[in-house]
């Protein structure tokens, strides 16, 4: 006779599967936003579990800013599209591309046009009424009070003052035409939970998370990888071969690497547990607009 106890990871897994199935059952046209990072990897894995032996009954959408690490695009196509056989939609803001905004020079504008605007365009284009995102509440302060089912008006705006109460595991999926719900199945997971789950479940990840020698330059104290020939090298900067890895993935000009020797999952977890800075530290965009920067971005429609 077993004691019928679930470990915290199994309980989180079960709750997330419940959320994912609820969306598939309640919405007409849901989509899973896929960003190639570790949170997306866990979310993908949970979606596979939720509908096994079938495939997830909704497409995945990647908003490609055209500045993602090359390895991310390769991983996306090899794993999600080819190996898993999931319907993958890729959206690029072609209007925005014409503006030729350099992420090196204007990171904020780049993110707004190529990520935030592009996401809204894609959601409008396909008419999705629900979009899964991999955000977690422990990531950043303004996310601590985000709902699992987070209502967005027809302009994709979030109103932090007027959120629907969310009780038990009863999620309100009602929306009027044009409105939508962002769904965060990993809301209650922490960074450690995500890593530990990846380790236990043996979930494939892009190579970028693991340390190896990479060509990079040190800019304002952050290691930027020379990922392709669009990388600008400023006067005085030296391209070095450094053992680095990335704690989060995004646009390579905006994502700082950390010096590391961690090349296995236990080593990565070890490093994460012993480190003294949070994962978003390496991201340039959080610091725009002071302490509440992310909150402003979310109101505007950034994920």
């Amino acid at each position: 006779m077993s004691s019928y106890q679930l470990t915290h990871l199994k309980q989180l897994e079960s709750e997330s599967i419940h959320i994912i199935r609820e969306v598939a059952a309640e919405f007409k046209n849901p989509v899973m936003l896929y960003s190639v990072g570790k949170d997306s990897a866990v979310m993908t894995h949970l979606a596979l579990k939720a509908f096994y032996p079938d495939k997830p009954p909704f497409p995945f959408l990647h908003v490609d800013t055209t500045w993602k690490f090359r390895e991310m695009i390769a991983f996306r196509d090899n794993y999600v599209k080819n190996e898993l056989g999931i319907e993958l939609l890729v959206h690029i803001n072609h209007e925005g591309l014409k503006l030729n905004i350099s992420p090196f020079e204007n990171s904020e504008k780049h993110t707004e046009v190529m990520k935030t605007d592009s996401l809204k365009m894609a959601l409008n284009k396909y008419g999705f009424d629900a979009a899964f995102g991999g955000a977690r509440r422990d990531e950043e302060k303004s996310r601590a009070k985000e709902r699992v089912f987070s209502f967005r008006d027809k302009f994709h705006r979030w109103d932090p003052k007027n959120q629907r109460p969310e009780l038990w595991n009863l999620y309100n999926a009602k929306v009027n035409p044009g409105e939508s719900i962002r769904v965060f199945p990993l809301s209650n997971w922490t960074e450690l939970d995500v890593w530990q789950y990846i380790y236990l479940e043996n979930i494939p990840l892009p190579d970028l998370y693991f340390a190896k020698p990479r060509k990079c330059v040190n800019r304002n104290g952050i290691w930027l990888q020379v990922n392709d020939d669009r990388m600008t090298i400023n006067p005085g900067e030296v391209v070095e071969d450094k053992m680095i890895r990335f704690r989060t993935l995004g646009c390579y000009p905006l994502t700082g690497g950390v010096e590391s020797t961690a090349s296995t999952l236990p080593e990565i977890i070890q490093e994460m547990l012993l480190t003294k800075t949070s994962e978003r530290q390496g991201r340039v965009i959080d610091k725009d607009g002071g302490g509440a920067g992310m909150e402003l971005k979310k109101i505007q429609g950034y994920f």
Binding site: L6, T7, H8, L200, P266, E267, I269, L273
Partner: peptide, 13 residues
């Protein structure tokens, strides 16, 4: 770290 991970696999919520 492996012992730590094993220990933390068995946590309750």
């Amino acid at each position: 770290i492996l012992a730590y991970l094993e220990q933390h696999e068995k946590k309750e919520l």
